[in-house]
Design a protein around this nucleic acid. Sequence first.
RNA 1: CGGGAUGUAGCGCAGCUUGGUAGCGCACCUCGCUUGGGACGAGGGGGUCGCACGUUCAAAUCGUGUCAUCCCGACCA
Length: 556
Amino acid sequence: MSKLFVQTLREFPSDAEVVSHKMLARAGFIRKLSSGIYNYLPLMWRVLRKVEAIVREEMDAAGAQELLMPFVQPRELWDESGRWEVYGKELMRLKDRHNREMCLGPTHEEVITAIARDGIKSYKQMPVNLYQIQSKFRDEVRPRYGLLRGREFIMKDAYSFDVDQDGLDKEYDNMAAAYTRIFERCGLATKMVQSDSGAIGGSVSHEFMVITDQDSGEDTVLYCPECGYAANSERAVSELEPEKTRSTLAPKEYHTPDIKSIEDLARHFGEPTNVILKSVVYIVDKKPVVAYIRGDREIQETKLKNALGANEIRLASNAEIEEIGLVPGFIGVKPIEIGAQMIVDNSVEGMEIFIAGANKKDYHVAGKIWATPTCDIGLAKENDSCVHCGAALKVTSGIEVGNIFKLGTKYSAPMNAVFLDENGKAKPYVMGCYGIGISRTAAAAVEAHHDEFGIKWPYAIAPYHAVVVPVSAEQMPVAQEIYEKLQAAGIETVLDDRDERPGVKFKDADLIGFPFRITVGKTIADGLVEFKVRSNGEMITIKPEEVENAIRARII
RNA sequence: CGGGAUGUAGCGCAGCUUGGUAGCGCACCUCGCUUGGGACGAGGGGGUCGCACGUUCAAAUCGUGUCAUCCCGACCA
C-alpha cells in the first residue's frame, strides 16, 4: 500500500455531482484532465482491465474476433455513409498538415464496413463478428457525471456481417445472451429494454440498463411487471384508458385573460386537464411544426423527431411562434391555414369535446375534435396500460451500459459493401452492431454498489480482492505472512504497510472498496484475526490460515 | 446554444464590499509523541491570485475583454 500510486482525499471534489464521480475521484481512481476527459489511475485501470477481460472472454466465447481499428479516421469514409454531414458537432473534426479532414472515431461503422468490403467477398465467409475495445471520442454538448458521460470513454464495439436477415436475427440473440452474461459477471443487474436507434440507425435496437435505486440514471425505463415488456421512454408505447374525454363546456369562445398554462385553464374552467388540448411549437430542421397532445400528457421529442423523419428539433421561441402568426399561450387548431405543419398525438383521438386556444390573445374555445390522422409522439407514463397485456406499467431510471442494433444494410448499401451469394449475385451485407461502455460499466458498478463510506466493488471487477491491515507495527510480521499466502493463492491482495493510525487505514479501505479486509490486531494474541466483508458488513474472527477459505466461500 | 455560478497551493475554502507586500484546514517534509475508525505538539516547503489589457503611486480586490470549469435546460451511445 505504501508503494501503491493512490492518493485518497479527505473530501469529495467540489465539481463532482453523482456518487460514482465523487467516489472514484475521492478514492483516487480517476482524475480529471479536462471537461469530460479523465485520467484512469492505477486502481481504475485495474478495474477497467477486469471489465475488459470479462467482455473479451464472453465475446470470444460467443464466436466474435477481436481486432483494433484506428482512432483517427479520414473524412472520405464518412462522406460515403453520409454521416459527415449528419453526425453534427459531436463528431470531433480535425485537419492534418496537408489540410485533409479527419475525425476522431465516435463509433466505427464506416471503418469496419470498409474492412469488410475489402475482405468479405463471398457468402462462404460469413457469418462473422468483429470487435474491438478502444477509446472513443464524442464531443458532447454537455459532458457530466464523471465517467458516466465523458467525452472520451472506453467502449467495446462489435459488428456482425451476415448474408441475410435470418443470420442477423440469430447473431442479435447471440449477442443479447452474451451481454446478459457479461453484466451478470460484472455484478450488475441489467434490464434489456427496447430503444430508439439514434444516430447509429437501424430498425431494431435494445439497451442494457443498470437499474439503480438512485436518480443517477439518465434514462427513463418503462416496464411491465406482468409480461416483461420494457422500453426506454424514448420509445415506450402504452395505451390510455378507452373512455373518451369530453369537456362540459358549451361549444363557443371564452374570454381567458392571461390564462395560458394547462393548469391555469383547468382551474379557470373547473375542468380536468385531459379535456384541454396542449399545443407545442417546435422548430424541426428549421421549419415550424405544431404538435398537439392531450393536456395531461407530454410530448416525447425523440418520438416526434422520428415521426417527422427529422434530424434536428427544438422548441420554438415566443418570437418564432408569433412570426408564423400564432399567439403563444393561445394556440388553436388552425395553424395549417398559415402554413405550419401539424402533428397530432394518439391521445387527442380520445378527446371528444375539448378546450383549445382561439388563436387570438386572451381567448380559448371549446369544441369538437377535428378529424385528422394521429400518431404516437407522447411520453408513456407510470400506470399507463401495457399494450401487450394491459397491466399497469412501472417507471424506473437506468444507466445504459450496452446497446445492440440491427443495422441491416444501412451502411453496407450506401458504401457499396457487397458479397456474392450462391447465385453469383452481389448483395450488401446484413449488419448488426453491439456496444458496451467499458468505463461507464465500471462507473455504473459504483452507482449500484456503494455506501456512505465508499465503494463496495463486486469481487469480479474489484481492483484488488483483499486488504490486510496490521493495526500497529508489532502485527506487521503476521500481516505480511497472511498477505504472502493470499497472493500465492491467487487472491489479489494489498498489505497496508503505511505508518498510519488504524483509523486512517480503515477509512481508506472502506473508501477504496476492497471486497475483503483482514485486520491483524489485539486478537492475534489468541491467534485470531478479524475478517470483514465490505459488501454486507459481515464480520467474523478467524484463524489466519482460515482466511483463504473464508474468501473462497464468499465468492460465487 | 440559452439561463445561472465559480476561477486564490495537490484537495476544500476565506480574503474582494471599503485597493496598501496572500491566509486557513487537509495533504506534503523534519522531529517528538501516539496506534482499533481520518490523533496531538513544534518546525518547514509549496501560490505568475485563470489569462490579457486598462484605471491607480499601488490591483487577488475596481473596469473591459477573454479563456476555463461546474450547475439547470436544449442535445446525445
